[in-house]
Nucleic acid binder design. Structure first.
Lengths: 198, 198
DNA sequence: TGTACATCAGTGAACGCGCGTTCACTGATGTAC
DNA sequence: TGTACATCAGTGAACGCGCGTTCACTGATGTAC
């Protein structure tokens, strides 16, 4: 039974959204197309009416994940005054909530090592999203020329990805919390220094 | 044709070693038992003469990976004077060589997100190895009480894992190199401060 | 605006393939006397 | 020390299963007149 163009577009979007959650929760290799379509409320036969291959839905899901992460980061930043916005962003990323909800979190923390082994087009799409987040953060770092700020944001975001990944691996809850806490302390202190200390 | 006990033990060890490389290169889900045994020079039928399940060889391979990483780190540290040992360790970890040779590198950088979704016993084994590396690094941080040094090492190593993971994802070679370089700069500077600056 | 036909979103069954696991078989090793 | 038998490391074929992908079919939507 054919659906209207608008309905079909909504279906596609819905599949991509739930695919992003499935991938982040179970991994890319760990998510089958049947399960992916079931999670979206469809049978798996219809998959190829929307995508050319599994690879394509991976690419679309990762792109959408970054768009929503960048979007909510932008909203958080414009909602808060001064350089507190960056601190809020970092604190949220390095929170226990984010650690415990991979499905709705950063795709780099959830799928980093799988993406590293992925195709060029997947890595390309992820690189674009990563650099958008980096630029967003760099804009919030004051007391630094733009080039230096970008370099600073580059390592800050990589550090955040590593911290959440490790906090998810470690079995001791105290060590896990300590990783997040210590990383927060190191990343937030420097940018405060210019206004607080001395 | 039965082999001697010693031969069998050597075979087992050899399978674990090549499994570690295979996992780090192709992922845990991405490595089949047939390929794993073929890489070790055997047919896949003999796998269950040495291991109870795929899960067990994963655990053994990760444990061995950490042992060899911790071992070579210890050798590097004891070979160099003062606190230069820690700098050498960090520089090597954050090198282009390590980035480009996942198979013989740190299992956390190569498999972090897969391990995070792994079984408790796999995560437990990895946590032990992670904390050994952390303690090794903490011992090299001077001008800090042991508890603080351990916390410092905790976030430093997480940061290193994140940097190598991101450097492997990013498609732009300059950005990839910049991630490693900036992370090196931030991690090496503080420990030098106590002897160099002021 | 109404009718006739082509299009295609979604279903459900099927495809070949590689996965983890099992098993009968082999012949050299280990053990018991 | 020598002989007879049990053990078991490694082989190669087979198992059921879930994977990504394909396809015939359906009926509502879109298009042409």
């Amino acid at each position: 039974m054919r659906r209207s163009r608008q309905e079909a577009a909504e279906t596609r979007r819905h599949i991509i959204e739930s695919a992003a959650t499935e991938f982040c929760n179970n991994g890319i290799d760990g998510t089958g197309l049947a399960g992916l379509m079931a999670a979206a409320g469809f049978t798996h036969g219809g998959f190829y009416k929307h995508f050319e291959s599994k690879e394509q839905v991976v690419e679309d899901a990762l792109t959408l994940s970054f768009e929503s992460m960048v979007g909510s980061a932008q909203r958080a930043l414009s909602a808060s005054a001064d350089n507190r916005g960056l601190q809020t962003l970092i604190s949220r990323y390095l929170s226990v909530d984010h650690r415990d909800d991979a499905g709705h979190g950063c795709p780099l923390a959830a799928l980093g090592c799988e993406i590293a082994r992925g195709s060029d087009s997947v890595r390309e799409a992820v690189t674009i999203g990563f650099l958008e987040m980096v630029d967003l953060m760099a804009d919030q770092i004051d007391g630094m020329p733009p080039t230096a700020a970008r370099k600073e944001a580059l390592w800050m975001f990589s550090t955040m990805v590593g911290a959440v990944t490790m906090a998810r691996i470690v079995t001791d809850p105290e060590v896990s919390a300590a990783i997040l806490r210590e990383t927060r302390r190191h990343l937030i202190r420097p940018s405060v220094k210019s206004t607080d200390s001395r």
